[in-house]
Each structure stands twice: as C-alpha cells, then as structure tokens.
C-alpha cells in the first residue's frame, strides 16, 4: 500500500449526500479482473450530464474529493476505491462514510476523512469560489487545513491509532497478520468439533 502522511492538493466539491458505491462505479464496470483501469467508470452515469461538477474543467487535477454525508454506502465493491484512486484522488472528505467503503479505502491508501457538515460546507464554499485553493490533509497531525478568505482554518479528524500507523508506514495487512500465524494455528486446534466444512 502507498504510504499516506501529508497530502496537499486541490479539491472538488460534490454537493450530494448518500453517494452510494453504485454511483461511484456502476456494476457494468465490475466485470474486469484487474485492480486498475477503473477511472473511466468513476461516476460514469453522472458524468454524462454536462453540468456535473466533474465536467467542469476548473476542477481538473483535483486530488481531494469533498462530498456530503453517507458517502460510499451500499455495495462492498472495492472497485469504488480503485476508481477514485485511478482518477487521482488521495483523500475523500465527508461527514460520514459507509463502513465497508471506509474499510476498503483504508486498505488502499485512500484516506477517508470524517469532518462535520459545517467544515464540509466551508470547504465547498472555498473551492467553489477558488478552485485553485490548496487543501492539506495531514495524517500525522490528523488535521485538514485550508486558507479561507478571512483566516486559516484547521479541522481535526479522528482515526484510530492502528489504521493511522498502517497508512503512515504503508503496511500490508496480510504480512502483519501472518506475524501471528502461531496464534491462528493454536486457535484452529481448539475449534469446536461439529463446525461445518465444505466438501
């Protein structure tokens, strides 16, 4: 996994709540057997609308997505995270995320940042008035910073220590777990006798 420490970039405002993973990437794109090449599927139905924010060239190159609440609900498809990464995003900021999406993002180096709606609205206003505004997502300090018209804003966000450490170090979960293989083997030896097996 690619490390995440501090990222500064421009942001794109997605003023919608309940952006489910079917919107992030429709099912027709899930037939591929690779982990890459999903950027064309990202919000593909909405991108057919010329007025959709992703079609506004002033936001081209944005690497931070700022969305409404319940982002990434629905299907468990990790393709949603791959599509966002392929498109160039390193972080998504929203008031709240779907659990599975959030877990998938943390595994792929896409940082899900939960900020309260007021902060999200301030970021929407900022980048809509100045699409070149730089936004910093700082995982070391667990903080989002931006230059607002009147002041420098800094919002702290929560992320558990373990997930943060994994992202800062870019660690692979499987490798970490296999350090405890003895414990897995010991558990396997004490499992109940009547549990089902396939076959």
């Amino acid at each position: 996994m690619e490390k995440f420490t501090v990222h500064t970039g421009t942001a794109i405002p997605l003023r919608r709540s309940n952006v489910d993973t079917d919107q992030i990437i429709p099912a027709v794109y899930l037939k591929r057997v690779t982990r890459t090449g999903f950027a064309d599927g990202l919000f593909s139905a909405w991108r057919e609308d010329p007025a959709f924010v992703f079609n506004n060239p002033v936001f081209a190159g944005a690497s931070i997505l700022v969305a409404g609440t319940e982002f990434g609900t629905g299907s468990s498809r990790e393709h949603a995270v791959w599509a966002l990464r392929d498109y160039g995003f390193r972080a998504v900021i929203a008031p709240r995320f779907g659990d599975i999406f959030r877990g998938n993002a943390l595994k792929e180096g896409l940082l899900p940042v939960e900020l309260e709606l007021k902060a999200v609205e301030a970021l929407w206003d900022l980048v809509e008035s100045d699409p070149t505004a730089r936004v910093t997502v700082d995982l070391t300090a667990r903080e989002v910073r931006a230059e607002l018209p009147a002041s420098t804003a800094a919002w702290t966000f929560a992320l558990d220590d373990f997930s943060r450490w994994r992202l800062l170090e870019g660690l692979d979960d499987i490798g970490l777990t296999l350090r405890n293989e003895d414990a897995i083997t010991a558990y396997e030896e004490r499992r109940l006798s009547f549990l089902p097996v396939v076959g």
Binding site: S76, E78, H79, N104, K107, D173, I174, T177
Partner: peptide, 10 residues
C-alpha cells in the same frame, strides 16, 4: 458481514 476484495485476499 460483507468485505472488500483486499479483505477477501486477507
């Protein structure tokens, strides 16, 4: 519960 593909591999 449902999991993503990285977790499937795990």
């Amino acid at each position: 519960f449902g999991i993503g593909t990285s977790e499937v591999e795990h």
